[in-house]
């Protein structure tokens, strides 16, 4: 844990259409080699934070209005997505994560890899973690199943040789078994390539099982953060994200949150 921070987000503020503030003062820090989970319900600001890091805000008429995103000592907020990718950050988006009319192999050719890697290297890298893709190499990506598609998306992101891999909603629409398997692949990627990984998840259980550290966002703010194991044990997380308390004493979601949060801040 003495590694320096690879990615630092400081007091980030993002405004959509010059009117709606989606993220208000989020600070995160990701150390080299960590797996970090960002959790939260819909509209908490998870995806916006991820987009701010990966350079995708401009498309939705959003801007980072305050704060900073620093990667490897370089400020990267409001930069073009392709520049950010070449600096070493690759994103696996929530939807539309593969090129549907290209074959698997073409999906692995299209990404911009550093010049000294050739196509063969890209394929070897992909099959190292996802051997299943080797069987599907000339299949059109649009015909893959959800799990296979997610594998291809992860593989094609790896082709960019990122230092930091951002994964948006890995579990979306996938069976728990598949999610478990993919999470295990993330651990393997971290282990074998030393890639730092940030996962954004609604399904907290799967993410917290592999994460070293976690942040919980709500209404564009960080409300909780801590090491993976401690978060898993935290009462609020168990109650609202893991659903582990019995349903009879489950309280109203919003009111309890408000209460707990004010206690944390003022009490």
């Amino acid at each position: 844990m003495s590694e320096p921070a690879l990615l630092t987000v400081e007091k980030l503020e993002v405004v959509y259409h010059r009117a709606i503030t989606a993220v208000q003062g989020i600070s995160l820090s990701v150390r080299k080699g960590q797996i970090v989970a960002i959790l939260g319900t819909n509209g908490a600001g998870k995806s916006t934070t991820l987009r701010a890091i990966s350079g995708f805000l401009g498309i939705d008429d959003a801007r980072v209005t305050d704060g900073s995103v620093t990667f490897n000592g370089k400020r990267i907020e409001n930069r073009q997505p392709n520049e950010i990718t070449r600096l070493g950050i690759a994103l696996v988006p929530e939807r539309d994560k593969v090129f549907p009319n290209l074959t698997v192999i073409e999906n692995l050719t299209a990404p911009f890899a550093p010049a000294h890697y050739n196509r063969r290297d890209n394929e070897v890298l992909a099959y190292q973690f996802f051997p299943r893709l080797a069987e599907l190499r000339s299949r059109t990506a649009g015909l893959l199943s959800g799990g296979e598609r997610q594998m291809l998306a992860l593989a094609s992101a790896l082709v960019c040789r990122p230092e930091l891999l951002l994964v948006d909603e890995l579990s979306l629409g996938l069976a728990p078994v598949v999610v478990q398997d993919l999470m295990a692949r993330l651990v393997q990627i971290r282990h074998e390539l030393g890639t730092t990984i940030v996962v954004v998840e609604q399904s907290a259980a799967a993410a917290l099982n592999v994460a070293d550290y976690g942040y919980v966002l709500e209404n564009g703010r960080v409300v909780l953060d801590g090491e993976g194991a401690r978060l898993r044990a935290h009462g609020d997380i168990q109650e609202f994200y893991l659903g582990q308390t019995s349903s009879s004493d489950r309280r109203s979601y919003r009111s309890v949150k408000q209460y707990r949060r004010s206690r944390r801040w003022y009490g």
């Binding site: 990966s54 990718t85 090129f99 009319n101 299209a110």
Partner: peptide
């Protein structure tokens, strides 16, 4: 050539994969 086809199908993802649109 493959990058051109990729950009045509999904420009956002193409940019994300380091392709200069």
């Amino acid at each position: 050539g493959v990058r051109m086809r990729a950009a045509g199908q999904n420009p956002l993802l193409a940019a994300q994969r380091g392709i200069n649109l």
